[in-house]
Design a protein around this nucleic acid. Structure first.
Length: 260
DNA sequence: ATGCCCCCCTTTGGGGGA
C-alpha cells in the first residue's frame, strides 16, 4: 500500500496539479495539508470519481488537513488532543484496513512558529508537546501507526541547502529540533532517513528568490513510523520533480510503500 | 531572507506562510 503526504498550499489553486499527480503516482492513500478550505468547499467529487473516500478537517482560509483513501477508513478523528480551545485544523486520524494489517494514519500540519521568539513559537512548542503525548499512545498500541505531514522542522543541517540562513528560524532552532528528536527517540522510525542518508534531499522550495532554480530547499515533510509500522516499510521517496511543474505547491509529495 | 503565492472579499490591500 502506497501512502503519500502532500502539503498542497490551497485546494482551489492546486486542483490541476493535485489530480495530475494522483493519476500518475496512484497512491492508495494521500494525506493532504493546507487545504485552506472549509469542509463544504472541498471538491470531494473530484476524488470520489477517482475511487477515493474523502475525509476532511477544514478551516476557512488557513490550515486544513484531509485524507483521501482507495480503501475504507474507520474511526476518523479530527483535532490533536490536549487543548480543547485550539481552533486550528491541523490534525486528522483514521484507520485504513489493508489485506493483512490495519494501520492508524495521522495526518498533521505542524505550526510554522515564526517569528521566534513570540506567541506563535510558543504555540508551536506547545503543539509539539501535545504531539509527543499522542505519539506515546501510538507506541503503546500494538497496531501499526504512522504520523505524516508538514512538520515545519528541519531535523539536521544536511536537510537544508543553506543551513546558515535558517539558524534563527522557528523551523531550525535548537528547541524545535530537540522537540522533534525527542518524539523520534521514543521509538519512531523517520522513514526517509532510514532508507537514504544522503544530503541534498528536500521537500520544500520557497516561491521567492529563485529557490527552486537554485535548489535552495529544505526537508520538512516527514513520515514517522511506530515499530510495528516500520517493520512493514518497503520504500520511502520524495517526488521532487513535482516542484518543477505548472502552478506547483511550494512542497512536493513524500510517500512510503508498506507491505499490507 | 525575500526577487512569491494563497486566501479573503473584493476593486486595492491585508494576513499569513516557510
Amino acid at each position: 500500500m502506497k501512502i503519500a503526504s502532500f502539503n498542497i498550499n490551497g485546494i482551489k489553486a492546486r486542483i490541476g496539479a493535485l489530480t495530475d499527480w494522483l493519476d500518475e503516482a496512484q497512491p492508495d492513500v494521500a494525506l493532504l495539508q493546507e487545504i485552506k478550505s472549509v469542509d463544504e468547499g472541498f471538491p470531494r467529487e473530484l476524488f470520489e470519481d477517482r475511487g477515493y473516500v474523502v475525509e476532511t478537517h477544514g478551516q476557512k482560509s488557513f490550515n486544513g488537513v484531509a485524507i483521501l483513501s482507495k480503501h475504507p477508513l474507520e474511526d476518523v478523528s479530527r483535532g490533536l488532543p490536549g487543548d480543547d480551545g485550539d481552533e486550528q485544523a491541523r490534525w486528522i486520524e483514521a484507520t485504513v484496513v489493508g489485506n493483512t494489517h490495519a494501520v492508524r494514519l495521522c495526518g498533521l500540519y505542524l505550526p510554522n512558529g515564526n517569528p521566534a521568539p513570540g506567541p506563535k513559537y510558543d504555540y508551536k512548542l506547545a503543539w509539539m508537546a501535545r504531539l509527543e503525548a499522542r505519539a506515546r499512545q501510538l507506541l503503546a498500541d500494538e497496531m501499526p501507526a504512522l504520523m505524516a505531514g508538514d512538520y515545519n522542522v528541519i531535523p539536521q543541517a544536511e536537510d537544508a541547502a543553506n543551513p546558515k540562513a535558517w539558524e534563527t528560524d522557528a523551523l531550525f532552532l535548537p528547541q524545535t529540533r530537540a522537540a522533534f528528536r525527542r518524539i523520534v527517540n521514543l521509538g519512531f522510525t523517520e522513514a526517509f532517513r532510514a532508507r537514504n542518508q544522503a544530503p541534498g534531499h528536500y521537500s520544500f522550495w520557497d516561491y521567492q528568490a529563485g529557490a527552486w532554480e537554485k535548489d535552495n530547499g529544505i526537508r520538512i515533510d516527514h513520515f514517522l513510523l511506530n515499530p510495528a509500522c516500520a517493520d512493514l516499510m518497503q520504500d520511502c521517496q520524495i517526488d521532487r520533480a513535482i516542484r518543477g511543474r505548472e502552478k506547483p505547491s511550494d512542497h512536493v509529495p513524500i510517500w512510503v510503500e508498506l507491505a499490507l
